[in-house]
């Protein structure tokens, strides 16, 4: 029958279409853009998406429980400013700076979760409010200035602290891997986080219960799941991963730059949403999110090497996102709309 073979084609397209497109892009750029096919270029793609990818994996956890976290970008920039403040102005060691940032991320996640679970604020609004609050808060200690060694602290005092080498190692060190100094630390951290989040969401009972909450919260509660706790945990994971992203950004920049990280929120949300289309999942998933981030990275890298101007980048990302969403929601609604 015609109808059934049509359905099979659509199902194949939904399942593997996005991966096929990714492969097609790689092949195309390898021929069209000189120097695209090579280990250094590949690592560059990974490096360009590592931080957004980590943030995207966090937001994936909140999407899984049927929520959303708009505050991740501002948590990351807050971590960036906090780590700089700790080391440059308070002259604390790198370990303390990192721990302070992680604790801040966890705290923000906890507050987000409590606002949503206990105070019944809708997730988008709660995290939007938190985003606003953090963007403002991170400017207060330095009167709106960026933080760098030698900056004036008023009364003629100058900031003496520096980013310690151990901290900068996080953003700048590269491990040898066949080639000398090939793989940067953030890429390794991104891969570790991706595998960890994937294992957590896809293979553990906690992940399964979080998906159940996202799919039918009442049903999950009525089988005895502690819905409130899982939701709060999801926002805390998101907050901590966002602060990890902020730490890596600070380590790469080597200063507390107030203007950095503007695009983090949109880029990482886009990666998570593009991930819906991977393998026809039609729902948030860690593997899809990682692939979504890489997809955007490969596309931008390829286009840049073909001399596309930088200001077209956001447009390209937007096109990919809209296409992926249509792919996910339209096609899968067609193949799934067969319920009787």
């Amino acid at each position: 029958m015609n109808g059934s073979s049509d359905n099979r084609v659509i199902e194949l397209a939904i399942r593997y279409g996005f991966l096929a497109l990714l492969l097609g892009l790689v092949v195309f750029f390898s021929f069209a853009a000189n120097g695209f096919a090579g280990p250094r270029s590949a690592v560059f793609v990974f490096q360009s998406v590592a931080i957004t990818g980590i943030l995207a994996l966090g937001v994936t956890c909140t999407l899984v429980v049927g929520g959303f976290d708009l505050s991740i970008g501002s948590v990351a920039t807050s971590a960036l400013m906090l780590s700089a403040y700790c080391m440059v102005i308070l002259e604390l060691p790198a370990v303390v700076a990192v721990l302070a940032c992680l604790a801040m991320g966890a705290l923000v996640g906890l507050v987000n979760g409590l606002l949503i679970v206990k105070f019944k604020v809708p997730d988008l609004l709660a995290t939007l409010g938190m985003m606003f609050l953090l963007i403002g808060l991170q400017r207060i200690p330095t009167q709106g200035n960026s933080i760098a060694t030698g900056m004036s602290l008023g009364d003629g005092v100058v900031a003496e602290g520096t980013f310690s080498p151990a901290f900068l190692w996080l953003g700048r060190n590269r491990f040898d891997f066949f080639l000398e100094r090939l793989i940067p630390v953030p890429v390794i951290i991104f891969l570790i986080v991706a595998v960890a989040v994937w294992v957590f969401l896809a293979l553990t009972r906690h992940g399964r219960l979080m998906y159940a909450i996202g799919s039918n919260e009442r049903a999950a509660a009525l089988v005895g799941t502690n819905v409130a706790r899982y939701k709060i945990v999801a926002y805390m994971i998101s907050g901590v991963l966002a602060s990890v992203g902020g730490i890596l950004l600070a380590a790469r920049l080597g200063r507390g730059d107030i203007a950095s990280g503007n695009n983090l929120l949109l880029d990482s949300v886009a990666a998570a949403l593009i991930g819906f289309a991977v393998l026809g999942a039609a729902r948030p998933n860690a593997f899809g999110t990682a692939i979504g981030a890489l997809f955007v990275g490969i596309l931008l890298q390829g286009l840049t090497m073909m001399n596309a101007p930088y200001y077209t980048q956001d447009f390209v990302k937007g096109v990919v996102l809209v296409a992926a969403l249509v792919f996910t929601f339209y096609l899968s609604s067609r193949s799934r709309g067969t319920g009787r």
Partner: peptide
């Protein structure tokens, strides 16, 4: 409303608790 988790298969739905 109260029991089915629509995103899950039979096995996950059944063993959820």
């Amino acid at each position: 409303r109260n029991a089915v988790v629509p995103d899950f298969d039979i096995s996950d739905n059944m063993t959820l608790p």
